[in-house]
């Protein structure tokens, strides 16, 4: 994979507001290639919004957000920024995989069809190649017996694993996870985390919004604690979790650990 920049993700003073409500109040952070970053924080802290800004599902109102050196959502015209056309934004998103809290599988397509849809239609892969790759990915997430199952016939954990395979099928350079295990029954969380752990070990750059502190401690390279639209504290997971410096971090961790 060619590398355009020192960092996979660079956020520089990112602001985002919905009307009068300011959700992100200047986020600055860097994610290196191959890094696994966990974003934690109370609900409403802006961590999901920040994640959604990274692939332009939400539009940044201030600051700069770059993925692999490329400005997201805008073209820098020297003095002015120009909003990208929908097709150009779509082109940027091809390289950024996203996994949603509620899976968002396409219910009218089977597991395999979910996985091969974008490679065939967007990347213009040959159908046979897409199917071979799709089967390989579904096998990798442990669903070799569910190729032809519709999402309604799969458990939550299985659906989320299909969703991960679907995102991987586009060969992304960055994977975003928006609370991937929050909608799952407790006994199904493990199977999804196992897949994510394997993915992290394979060298994928990942940003994970999560409440799974055990996963964060074990798998993440860095941990960012957000509250009220700002980064309160960031560092090695063990440091932030066991030796928090800020009162807000301490208060939050005392509730979740």
């Amino acid at each position: 994979m060619t590398t355009n920049s020192q960092f996979m993700v660079q956020a520089q003073n990112v602001h985002k507001n919905f009307g009068a409500h300011e959700v992100l109040k200047g986020i600055t952070l860097n994610v290196t290639h191959g890094e696994v970053m966990c974003l934690v924080g109370p609900s409403g802290s802006g961590k999901s919004t920040f994640l959604r800004c990274i692939n332009h599902l939400d539009v940044v109102n201030g600051g700069r957000l770059l993925v692999d050196g490329e400005l997201i959502g805008y073209r820098d015209g020297g003095e002015k920024l120009f909003e990208l056309k929908a097709s150009e934004a779509a082109l940027q998103r091809r390289d950024i995989g996203m996994v949603f809290q509620k899976f968002n599988l396409f219910p009218h397509l089977t597991a395999l069809e979910n996985v091969i849809e974008a490679p065939i239609r967007v990347k213009k892969l040959k159908r046979a190649d897409a199917i071979a790759r799709g089967k390989e990915l579904l096998t990798r997430v442990g669903l070799e017996e569910k190729f032809d199952s519709y999402p309604a016939h799969l458990s939550g954990g299985q659906q989320q694993r299909v969703a991960i395979a679907r995102a991987l099928a586009m060969d992304p350079k960055l994977m975003l996870f928006d609370e991937p295990t929050s909608a799952l029954d407790p006994e199904l969380v493990g199977e999804v985390l196992d897949v994510m752990r394997e993915l992290a070990n394979s060298g994928m750059t990942m940003i994970v919004v999560t409440h799974e502190m055990g996963f964060a401690r074990e798998v993440a390279d860095s941990l960012v604690f957000m509250d009220n639209g700002v980064v309160v504290e960031a560092g090695k997971p063990a440091e932030v979790l066991f030796n928090p410096q800020h009162d807000r971090t301490k208060a939050f961790l005392s509730k979740v650990l």
Partner: peptide
Amino acid sequence: EAAKALGMGW
């Protein structure tokens, strides 16, 4: 959103 995130156009 899922379609968008996969790089699909409108």
